[in-house]
């Protein structure tokens, strides 16, 4: 177990290092010259060169990468050329909002997804099953930008049930969580359905039935816990999927998280912010996967870590 953990940690570090190289290479691959962004359109070549020197951007790639990595280890993500402030400060200020939205989204996707999957499995092959599976397919495929605007228009603008975007209270949280959650709910519904169908085929379920337990009792006491466990272990992996959705949904709802930050940065070609958010999200995804792997054997003893 310890050896496994060490190996996984080492692998995770390698992955992060690889990602840092790729994000750093962005600076070179993207056509936007940060020096020109700073210097403005009326700068003379002399000014441009002076700024390039001050920022150390005239140094060779490896020297620059080394310095970047050294700063990174110390938690310094650099400074945004456009916002002219520390990237870490910008990310830290927005991280709580993103975490809150992720929690909200996970609650939504579990509530919706598990319920749908359960119903579909119990009524397997029926019209209910089929329509639920179609719904889950639509949920997985629908562009979140459209879903978000649709929810916003119907529930906030038309029905006045929720505020039109923004951040601060519980009612601000519901629509964006739902929008992110609908995508995940589709996945969970499908997983829950097949997991539940597997469990329902097991002998002990037949035994429970045979000894005359009520159908509901069999489902809730005996089948559900076993069906849910492997799914709960997936939540860690889910972080990656959620990250993608959050970029879009935060922008639609004016949610002040890191997704919105990176969306703005992409539009303004603010490379240090793009690099910083990419690294932080990669870190979260790697961490999520690691946790999922570590937690799995505790939830399902059949899984062994080697």
């Amino acid at each position: 177990m310890i050896a496994y953990l060490c190996r996984r940690l080492f692998q995770s570090l390698l992955i992060l290092l690889g990602i840092s190289i790729i994000t750093f290479a962005l600076l070179y691959l993207l056509p936007a010259d940060p020096v020109r962004q700073i210097a403005g359109r009326s700068a003379t070549p002399a000014t441009v060169e002076s700024i390039r020197r001050q920022l150390g951007l005239d140094q060779p790639f490896l020297v620059q990468y080394g310095r970047y990595l050294w700063n990174l280890v110390q938690g310094d993500l650099g400074r945004s050329y456009i916002q002219r402030s520390e990237v870490s400060e910008l990310i830290v200020a927005r991280l709580p909002a993103t975490l809150l939205l992720m929690v909200g989204a996970i609650v939504c996707e579990l509530l919706i997804g598990l319920t749908m999957g359960l119903l579909a499995a119990v009524r397997r092959g029926s019209a209910t099953d089929q329509s639920l599976m179609v719904a889950s397919f639509v949920g997985v495929s629908a562009p979140q930008f459209v879903v978000g605007l649709l929810l916003l228009y119907v529930f906030a603008v038309r029905l006045n049930w929720f505020p039109i975007g923004g951040y601060g209270t519980f009612s601000h949280l519901i629509l964006p969580s739902l929008t992110v959650g609908i995508l995940g709910a589709g996945w969970y519904a499908r997983m829950m359905r097949s997991s539940m169908i597997d469990v329902l085929r097991q002998d002990y379920i037949r035994t429970a039935r045979a000894k005359g337990l009520a159908r509901a009792t069999v489902l809730i006491r005996h089948a559900l816990p076993n069906a849910i466990l492997p799914i709960v272990a997936m939540i860690g992996i889910d972080v990656g999927i959620l990250m993608g959705g959050i970029v879009v949904v935060e922008s639609v709802f004016g949610w002040p998280g890191i997704g919105q930050l990176v969306w703005q940065a992409i539009q303004r070609v603010d490379i240090p912010i793009i690099m910083g958010v990419t690294l932080v999200s990669a870190f979260a995804i790697v961490l999520g996967n690691l946790l999922a792997d570590i937690v799995a054997p505790f939830i399902d003893p059949r899984i062994k870590l080697r």
């Binding site: 605007l149 916003l152 228009y153 906030a156 603008v157 039109i164 975007g165 923004g166 935060e250 922008s251 639609v252 709802f253 004016g254 949610w255 002040p256 919105q260």
Partner: peptide
């Protein structure tokens, strides 16, 4: 100045007097 509002959402909020 409220930041992070998509123009289309801002227009909806203007129509509602927010």
């Amino acid at each position: 100045f409220e930041i992070g509002q998509e123009p289309i959402v801002a227009l909806l909020r203007l129509q509602k007097g927010e």
